[in-house]
Computed example of a mutant assay.
Amino acid sequence: MIDHVHDLACLQNATERLLIAVAKMDNAAVREPSRLPGWSRGHVLAHVARNADALVNVFEGRPMYASAEARDSDIERDAPRPLDEQTEDVRESAARFRAATEAPGDWSRTVELRNGVTDSAARVVFRRWVEIELHHVDLGIGYELEDLPAEFTEREIGFLAERFSGHPDVSPTRLSDGTRAWSTGRAGDPEVTVTGSGADLVGWLAGRRDGGSLSVEGGTLPKLPPL
């Protein structure tokens, strides 16, 4: 069962860690490349802020983004801003998201995200937590996949395994971190077993690592579709 109250507390902690880390940068660092191809750190921070506002739209029954083009243009517009503007935008947009979660509402209701994806309102909080944690790593400022909270890592592996479950282009796959196991890919007996640390598994599933450090038995490492 999803506990959105617990997730809101975890999200708040993750957001504060991000803001503390970002405050140690300077304007030159914001303009430097992030770990995401074609994006500066400013792009990442702009996306984090605009994603918060987009999820407010979701909670309030509006389209997440006016269009894919509008989403991209907003990020490009905001990416070049100096550090103080970026930081304040991340902080203020996070506060707007928090305010939206405090409005009365049915947390079990189904809401629509991008590209026709639907989910429960309660799990939107976890999705936002994902945005904060992974994009903190993407900034390349000392926060690594190994630094992610253990609870988050385990849940994100399960979340992404579920996302690829039944996908026709992913062979039946068993995932294990040595103590826990997940299944993903097409239905059927697992053809491939992929074993590694939680950080390496979540990195591969989330497209942040190539999977070269994972152990693969029964075939080759499946190629995952983009998120």
Rank of each mutant, 00 (worst) to 15 (best):
G105K: 05
P82S: 08
H43V: 02
L36V: 12
H167K: 07
E146S: 15
A21W: 01
M1K: 11
S108F: 02
R71H: 08
S165I: 01
S165N: 10
S165G: 11
R31F: 00
Q12D: 15
D169N: 09
S213P: 02
L11F: 13
L113P: 01
P168N: 03
R128N: 10
G38D: 08
G142D: 07
G212F: 01
Y143I: 05
W107Q: 05
R123I: 11
E60Y: 12
P37F: 00
D189V: 12
P190F: 00
F126R: 07
A46Q: 02
Q12E: 15
E60T: 15
V22L: 06
L214A: 02
D106A: 06
Y143A: 04
P80M: 08
L45N: 02
G198Y: 01
A49R: 01
V90Y: 04
G218N: 07
P149R: 11
P63Q: 14
R109A: 14
R163G: 02
I2T: 11
I20E: 14
A28G: 08
P168E: 07
R127L: 09
V170D: 03
A199G: 09
L227D: 07
E131Y: 06
E144V: 02
D106W: 07
V194P: 03
I75A: 02
E217T: 12
D177S: 03
A199V: 08
S171T: 12
R123T: 13
D26N: 15
V216K: 07
A206R: 09
A70L: 07
R77Y: 08
W204Y: 13
D26V: 05
H6S: 13
G211H: 06
R109K: 15
G218F: 04
D210F: 08
K24E: 15
E32S: 13
H136P: 06
D138Q: 10
A14T: 09
A99K: 14
G42D: 08
S213M: 07
R96L: 02
A21F: 00
R155K: 10
E112G: 12
E76Y: 00
D74H: 04
A181C: 10
T153E: 10
V58C: 13
R62E: 15
V22C: 05
E85P: 06
V194A: 02
E85T: 12
L18G: 00
R155V: 00
L139F: 06
